[in-house]
Design a protein around this nucleic acid. Sequence first.
DNA 1: GACGACATACCGACTGGTTGGTATGTTTAG
DNA 2: CTAAACATACCAACCAGTCGGTATGTCGTC
Lengths: 187, 187
Amino acid sequence: MLVRKQGYAATSVDEICAAAGVSKGAFFHHFASKEELGVAAAEQWTVRADELIFTLPPWVRIEDPLERLLAHIDFRMFMLEGPPEGFTCFVGTMVQESFASSDTLRRASDASISAYCERLAVDIEAAIARYGIRDGVSAISLSYHIQAVLQGAFIIAKAKNSPKEARDSVLHLKRYIKMLFERGETE
Amino acid sequence: MLVRKQGYAATSVDEICAAAGVSKGAFFHHFASKEELGVAAAEQWTVRADELIFTLPPWVRIEDPLERLLAHIDFRMFMLEGPPEGFTCFVGTMVQESFASSDTLRRASDASISAYCERLAVDIEAAIARYGIRDGVSAISLSYHIQAVLQGAFIIAKAKNSPKEARDSVLHLKRYIKMLFERGETE
DNA sequence: GACGACATACCGACTGGTTGGTATGTTTAG
DNA sequence: CTAAACATACCAACCAGTCGGTATGTCGTC
């Protein structure tokens, strides 16, 4: 999607229509406003991201939940190579633009991010159940932390116009997760 | 600054002029374009952030570099309370909007972020020299990781409209740093 | 199966307002 | 007197959103 590359505000309805090959009349027939498109796009993004990350890749069938989690991190790190429109999180970008101007868009973005984090927390929970974890860290808070590191890595990668520093940051995340699970007490 | 709250694209030159109490003529007398204002704002942000984080707070005079680093993390976490315009990183937000449309703005944002990270790396380097660190982690890469976690935490806080998850993420970062330095081999 | 009544999908010219930027005039300081 | 600092009025381009119109069903009724 164009909006993913350019941002929500920077992409006009005319551009969207031209790229999608539809008329402006058709656009406003299906969406009452540009904002409504943003909400729909966020919902679709939730579905697509879930597929792309939790369904399609082969490593999602790794049995060991901790190994699966680490493979997940590796996968996200691998995505940092290549152009920003390949790794950028659509809702992460949109929420920064819209949280001040549109609560509707903010909520839609939040819903998408939360859905991802809650899905990821399931795997983390399984890993904790099997291996235990240090300091009684909760699955959901670690999940949000992973999300935060990734979002931050995207920003660094865009600013640097290079994936190097971002990749290193995700490596730090991976090391942290390993450390949390090694010697973690099973309760 | 208004741009910090609303974002670069979402803030018009007229608004900026009204808020600053100057006429549009005066604005374009000082800046050739809106983009040039963005660059100047990024430069000013570098200075202000350095003061706000590395000069003014009392804890910058803590002698132990590791304790100082951890106090720094606590400080950033504390900033997450309160409204977004209080904790938001101006250049972090701007780079997301502009990296696709203006390389000039992207470079200006990068310069600001890099300046912060390099300054922080000095403290980290001192901590490593005194205590050693696990896995031969480099000061500058840890510095960028800290930056990434903070930027990511800002996004989460904005999406959730609450600092809770973001605060927890920074706590994870703090735990990670502690773990890196505990039992680190001094070379 | 023929007919009108109504609904849905779609088109693209148009509008009112906003945008970044300019042209031109006025004030102020050295 | 001059040049920089500022103000005012203005512009063309662009923006999201509207509106009258058309083409294509798809019902119910006789």
